[in-house]
């Protein structure tokens, strides 16, 4: 008796060039960008006060290179950007380091958790613009206001994430370290920090995004220089392409930091996870009777 023929599922039809292009990572990204710019262009037709992509690109070119642009002084892109970046990095440094220390404290001591956890949670709910207002009220139009806005906005995100990470450290590894009398500093470097690395990155990501929002708001309200100040300058001058141009600068900056810097740091910190198991060594050894 022969078995009845089984109907095999039909092989998928060969995919067309467009479909293959769309499903490739680069193709999808390029297509999304083209669709976005097209939609933006369309919007300028419906709402003529919205500056178009070409307009904004032209503005950015002039703002960066310093060409002539209607008689207003410009070509100051790098100067303003450098001012903001300095303040941002300084604020992020303070927010990150204090968040790391407080997070470790909350994660490792029940007393510190009881005392500090709620405070950090309250800080977490404070929007960045509140810090921008408060620091301006406290320090006036100074460099401290934007720096502290970044630090205050970034701090609770780092602290909460790190605290969670510290509490998630395997107690078996802690006990092993105690049994071998490994010193505290060595435990911190080789056990705590790597175990918490994923949480540190998550906290840092939030801190960067929230801190960047904070600095722009702070400079908008109280800056004499910087990216936020420059954005307001063009807004007040009724030059919307200038405003939109600088908004694009913020976005590009954040995307670049996230994709290029953080992703690479993360890949480096987690290279131990990406190694393949090497079974052949075990097989060889079993053969020689080890």
């Amino acid at each position: 008796m022969t078995a009845a023929p089984v109907a095999l599922p039909e092989a998928p039809a060969p995919q067309g060039g467009l479909r293959r292009w769309l499903s490739s990572p680069i193709g999808a990204q390029v297509t999304a960008a083209v669709v976005f710019i097209g939609a933006w262009q369309l919007l300028t037709v419906i709402a003529p006060r919205v500056p178009g992509p070409a307009d904004v690109a032209n503005f950015l070119f002039v703002e960066i290179t310093g060409g002539s642009h209607g008689g207003i002084v410009r070509g100051q892109f790098f100067e303003h950007f450098a001012v903001t970046l300095q303040r941002f990095l300084l604020g992020l440094f303070f927010g990150f380091v204090s968040g790391l220390l407080v997070g470790i404290l909350i994660g490792s001591s029940t007393l510190a958790r009881a005392l500090l956890n709620d405070t950090v949670l309250v800080l977490l709910t404070m929007p960045a613009f509140v810090w921008a207002f408060l620091t301006t009220m406290w320090f006036g139009i100074t460099w401290q206001a934007p720096v502290l806005t970044v630090a205050f906005s970034a701090f609770p995100f780092v602290a909460i994430n790190v605290a969670q990470g510290v509490r998630a450290i395997a107690p078996e590894l802690r006990n092993m370290s105690t049994a071998f009398e490994v010193g505290r500093w060595k435990q911190f470097r080789h056990l705590t920090v790597p175990a918490v690395a994923g949480y540190i990155f998550a906290g840092l990501r939030f801190a960067i995004i929230i801190g960047w929002n904070g600095i722009l708001l702070s400079e908008w309200f109280s800056g004499q220089a910087g990216v936020g100040f420059r954005t307001r300058y063009w807004f007040d001058a009724n030059r919307y392409r200038g405003f939109v141009g600088w908004v694009i600068v913020f976005i590009v900056f954040i995307v670049l930091v996230d994709r290029v810097l953080l992703n690479r740091l993360q890949a480096r910190a987690f290279r131990w996870r990406d190694q393949k198991e090497v079974d052949f060594i075990e097989i060889q050894e079993e053969q020689v009777g080890l």
Partner: peptide
Amino acid sequence: HLGYVFQDARLLPWRTVMDNMLYVRD
């Protein structure tokens, strides 16, 4: 001075074998 072998190996997964060996030494 004590040494300890546990039910499971209890190695630091983010450190190499040699770094794990050196972790318990000064």
